[in-house]
Design a protein around this nucleic acid. Sequence first.
DNA 1: GTTTAATGTGTTATTATGACGCAATGTAAT
DNA 2: ATTACATTGCGTCATAATAACACATTAAAC
Lengths: 251, 251
Amino acid sequence: MSNGFIENSENYQPGLSIDCVIFGFHDNQLKVLLIKTPYEDKWSLPGGFIPLDQDIDTAASTVLNGRTGIEGIFLRQFATFGKVKRNDQHFNNAVLEHFKIPKEAGNWFTQRFVTIGYYALVDFLKAIPQKDNSQEIIEWIDHKEVPELILDHKEILDKALDTLRIELNLMPIGYNLLPEKFTIPELQKLYETILDKQLDRRNFLRKITNIGILNKLDEKKSNVAHKAPNLYTFDKDKYEEVLKNGLNQGW
Amino acid sequence: MSNGFIENSENYQPGLSIDCVIFGFHDNQLKVLLIKTPYEDKWSLPGGFIPLDQDIDTAASTVLNGRTGIEGIFLRQFATFGKVKRNDQHFNNAVLEHFKIPKEAGNWFTQRFVTIGYYALVDFLKAIPQKDNSQEIIEWIDHKEVPELILDHKEILDKALDTLRIELNLMPIGYNLLPEKFTIPELQKLYETILDKQLDRRNFLRKITNIGILNKLDEKKSNVAHKAPNLYTFDKDKYEEVLKNGLNQGW
DNA sequence: GTTTAATGTGTTATTATGACGCAATGTAAT
DNA sequence: ATTACATTGCGTCATAATAACACATTAAAC
């Protein structure tokens, strides 16, 4: 939350915010980008407000781009949260004072905020956490070790992960989370981490290759213990096509 | 939009609204509940605003209950719409005059509105369209014959139907759309209508019964042409269980 | 009674899935 | 160098799910 914003609250959509659950994958762990709040021992999702002259998707994209430095990435709206008490007592006097927000502008903050949740899948190595100011702490945190979050951000994070799990059955995934060249075991670890479930190596290989979105390279991963696994890339065109048409038809 | 509301705009969440896509099923047609706008030859989705002291889900439930007279029904948030221009030029002077909204309160309406979309599945025969006032026209309309809608309501309706199609693969459906006793062919027609696709009778029967949510009754439908089909009910407990756990696991 | 248009039940071939076996490969220990 | 070991790549088999289709049954309409 920049001071530039505070002075211009009338330029933003009142009572509405954006929160982004930004997922990355590294060291076989699903990571989430979180920000430490300066005024208490809790963390929060990267978020922002919606300029009156911006589409909500654009505002979400701005948050994501501002926090990772990359753009054109996978970003999806998944739910909107608006319980009456969701930010009750949050922007209290102590917090307003911390941000040096004058009392008369305080009303803008103390009202109930409805927040629109987006989740993003980004390349961990390309997405460099960006601070809003020098004091800020923003870090990738293993989704299994998420500390206490402010407000209902835990609920938002859980819902994002639930959505991702469901969408894993409907669309291919990995293009936005893995480096350009990757191995099947790496891709499998990604799936296993998201689903929190072990998958059979051999069946996974069969199923994932049958989708027809992978290009096997004449190249093996180097500097690895044990047998060197083959490297693959995604076939961008076919990937996009499957992403558009969906995986399982069901009926 | 009642006049009671207009006089109390400060009691509602600014710049936010609810729109409900209410689906019913009748005469083998998927119906949508629509409202004729009094000031032009377009229709709109039933909607409303969000009281400051109500959760957004509650506000959606209020809209639905107020428009159909029933409660405790299937209601899901599916997306939030917030393009900058989505209600640009909509609440113009002519409209404000029609509703006798004073200029100073008009600003509340002419700002950009972000709307939270919900879709509902209701029993056509139990849901009686409720007018806000005697002049209002509110009707069930076949989803294939939807007239021109205001704003981005067509986009909202399409997105609701897309969501329903996807969720058809993840959860059972019919409990909220069909009468208590129904036949397999009726249930199949419901699926075919939503999916806009023909299904094989025999394969459908096998698949739907394998889910284990149907109770076959010792009773046949009467007064029908041709062979009388068997009547079924849903096994509420098993239905709820499948609804909770989901249908296809995928991975 | 015969016709007609539906429903109920069953069959078969094909495909997808889940649970494995086993050889190949590259690192690390001896 | 030889061996042990963990991991990868490829394949098999039984079972389940799916798609396509045949045939008998039923009740209203003529």
